[in-house]
Design a protein around this nucleic acid. Structure first.
Lengths: 107, 107
DNA sequence: CGTATATGCAATGAAATGGTTGCACCTGGC
DNA sequence: GCCAGGTGCAACCATTTCATTGCATATACG
């Protein structure tokens, strides 16, 4: 039910993916406005399409997005389950030290 | 009240700090067993004291620990407020897409 | 068919990261 | 005073990361 705990490597990849501002932006964009192609996502950004593709691959490796082919294009879709896993780790690590964490933890 | 939102750079540093297994281990160790010196923290680990020092500085830069001098030693203490900030970002980004996130979010 | 658009792959390069070692510098205690 | 233990600093090295560019491939469509 609750997000099952991830291995050490998965956590590396997950937090690593979230550590980059461009990747966070892409993820938020996908979460907020739905699936999009690398080309479309790159358009408003100050970096090349290839850079965006690599970032999306990073997000995919972390399980935060999936690539879905549709004819000639590839549409990336956010899969937020892993965000819950990240939250799970943070709450678990944080224990009851912080009032805010404690409040969140208690549901 | 709630953990105030961090800037983009702060999020980079925060998630970046969490992206390394040794740093997560150190953080968990400090959270679970209380403050300790770099030398003591390095002892059971397969890396040098200097490596641990650098990791602790990374955690300190992220606001996850603070260094407190006590005579000839420096004791590092975990400060979990930033964990709440990370959780805040994740919940905010996740929106209502995932049932688990949604549940947490509705607290 | 032919062309325009979207994607894929590879080489390259600059900078950041994670780790090491060696040595200098405090500070507490005999 | 002297010595040992804990820190701090700097140089150095290997690897990874972020971004670029150029070109190849594939597919939609008139």
């Amino acid at each position: 039910m609750s997000a099952e705990p991830l291995g050490v490597d998965a956590l590396d990849t997950l937090f690593g993916a979230l550590a980059d501002p461009t990747r966070r932006l892409l993820l938020q964009r996908l979460l907020a406005k739905g699936p999009a192609t690398a080309t479309a996502l790159a358009e408003p950004l100050p970096v090349s399409r290839q850079a965006v593709v690599k970032h999306l691959q990073g997000l995919a490796a972390a399980g935060l997005v999936v690539a879905e082919r549709d004819g000639r294009e590839v549409r990336f879709r956010a899969t937020p389950e892993r965000l819950a896993s990240a939250v799970g780790w943070l709450l678990d690590a944080g224990g009851s030290w912080d009032r805010r964490i404690d409040r969140l933890r208690r549901r």
